[in-house]
Each structure stands twice: as C-alpha cells, then as structure tokens.
Amino acid sequence: MPETSTLLKHLPKMETGVMESYLQGVRFFSSTQPVPRRPMVYDPGICVVAQGHKTGYLGGKPFRYHANNYLVTSVTMPFKCETFGCPEEPLLGLYIDIELGQLNELISGMGLQAEMSKAAEETLPRGIGPAALDAEMTDAVARLLKALRSETEARLLGPGLMREVLFRALGGTQAPVLYALAMYSGTFSKVAQVLKIMQSHYAEKLDVEHLAERVHMSASAFHRAFKEVTSESPMQYLKKIRLTKARDLMVRESMKAYMAADRVGYESPSQFSRELKRFFGQSPAEMTRELRAA
C-alpha cells in the first residue's frame, strides 16, 4: 500500500503512538521500533496496516496482519500482539470503529439478509481475523486518508468514506464476522451481549452460571460458544479485562496498585500482583518504576 503509507506519513501531527484523527471513530498508529509480544484489547473495528506488520496471538495460535490484508474485530477482544517496525520503515496504520446501526443499514441495503441467515447456521466465527486487502478496499482507505488531512473534509466527507470502508469489508472474507455482529438473535449475538456485560460490570462478582442465565443458555453450551468466539473461557476473558483496566488506572491516573486491584474487582492484592505479572510480565512495583522513569 505505497500510496496509503505515504498519506499516513504526511498527516498533520503524525507521531509515534496512537493518535486521534479529525474524525471521531478513526485513529492512527505508528511505531518506529519493534514492540515485543504484549497484551492488547481491540474493540469492534477494522484495522488497516499500511506499512510494517503485526502478529496477533489468540488461543496460542498466531495470525499476521500487514499491508496486504486488514483485520476485522467484531467483539471486544483481549489478545497478545507483537509489532514490527523500525526507524527506516515504521509501522503505520489506522483503526476504524464499527458503528452497529450503520452496519445493519448496509446489510439491509446490500440485500445480504440471506447470507447472514446462512452464516448463522454455520460454525460460530472467531471474533477477530484478517481478510485479504483488495483494490476496492485499498482505494476506499486511501480516499478516507486524503479527507483526513483537512478538518473540514474530515467533517463533511469522512462519515461517508468510513461507511464505504465498512461496505467493502462486507464484501470481503471476514463478512461472516460482521454478519454475526449484526444479528440480534443467535448464539453469537448472545455471546456478544455477555461481552458487553463483562465490559461494563467487570468489577462485579460474575460467574459462568449467572452469565449464561442472562442470555437463556445452559452453562455448558454458553461456555462452549464463548470459547469458540473468543478462544478464551469466560473467566479467563474476565481476568484479562480486569487486568487491562487496572493497568490503565495505574498508567493514566497514577493509581496505586492495591487501589486499582480493588477498583477492578480483586479482593486479594497478592493474587492481583501475581496475575498482573503473569499477564504483563511486570509486577505492580516494576510497572510503577517504569512509569516514573518515563
């Protein structure tokens, strides 16, 4: 994607890290050095890497996304990710949020209800996966980036161009993931409902039986479906969400570890410390020292 990478390099205020664009729902990211495998959380969206590449690890299995494909995420997914970039060829890309109302409008307008129903009868799709980047998607992304160089064009043209990117994704190989997100019923939808509950109420005492009851499923069927979509058991997923939220509190609000642990639902500070180090590779004290040195 030479044109796309050139456009990203020359965007206003483009710098290392994650940056908001002029258009709500679109963010840019850049890295001038490799980043070792570390936990991340992606919300529903489309991730386009224009230069460099990333390797994600879900359920112990790697998947790569780079300039020849794009990544579709249909539910909030914690996974581990390794970034490959360098000063000579930095990682460059953008992330486009998926708006559910717009997704449903496009599915209806494109007459994809039959395909959506057929997908519902097949195996549950994973909540995240790469799709081949074709010429139409490449062109749509490039035109979106051109509009995002100007605050006025971003405001007036950006929403329509975001819609076109989603339209192109519905014609790609990860379309079943988007169909599953759009369905109001069915097993995938029930798992998606529980994921929203866990995202909003992660600090509460949640268990498999209670969550299964919320979506009128047996505990065993719910556990099986949850793992098919996320590659995690419900409690492993919840733990990763809690630890990620706790780290955000410690990083962004300089909150002490024991307070962050309590805020996200941990009753035992020692258990929190053990699990944080296992997940992020750093103890709370090591994480705090790194923040102070930064």
Rank of each mutant, 00 (worst) to 15 (best):
S5T: 07
T6K: 07
L7S: 05
H10D: 15
M14Y: 12
T16F: 02
V18W: 09
M19V: 08
Q24R: 01
Q24C: 01
F29I: 15
S30K: 15
S30Y: 02
Q33V: 03
V35A: 13
M40T: 10
Y42I: 09
I46C: 12
C47Y: 10
V48H: 13
Q51F: 09
K54T: 13
T55D: 11
Y57L: 11
Y57M: 06
L58W: 14
G60H: 01
F63R: 15
F63I: 12
H66Q: 15
T76E: 12
M77N: 03
F79E: 15
K80A: 09
C81G: 14
T83W: 14
G85C: 01
E89Y: 03
G101T: 14
G101Q: 11
G101R: 12
G101P: 10
Q102S: 07
P125L: 06
G129I: 04
R149V: 06
E151S: 14
T152F: 00
L156H: 12
L157C: 07
M162G: 01
L166S: 06
A169Y: 05
T173Y: 06
A175L: 03
Y179M: 08
S185H: 04
T187Y: 07
T187P: 02
L195F: 03
Y202E: 02
K205G: 15
D207H: 13
E209D: 08
H210E: 14
H210L: 14
H210Y: 09
L211Y: 10
V215F: 06
H216A: 00
H216K: 11
S218I: 05
S220R: 04
S220A: 09
S220D: 01
H223N: 09
R224N: 07
A225H: 06
F226E: 07
Q236K: 14
K239Y: 04
A246I: 03
D248I: 07
R252C: 02
R252I: 07
E253Y: 03
K256S: 11
A257S: 12
M259H: 13
R263E: 11
R263H: 11
V264C: 05
G265F: 10
Y266G: 04
E267F: 08
P269A: 07
R274L: 13
R274V: 09
F280C: 02
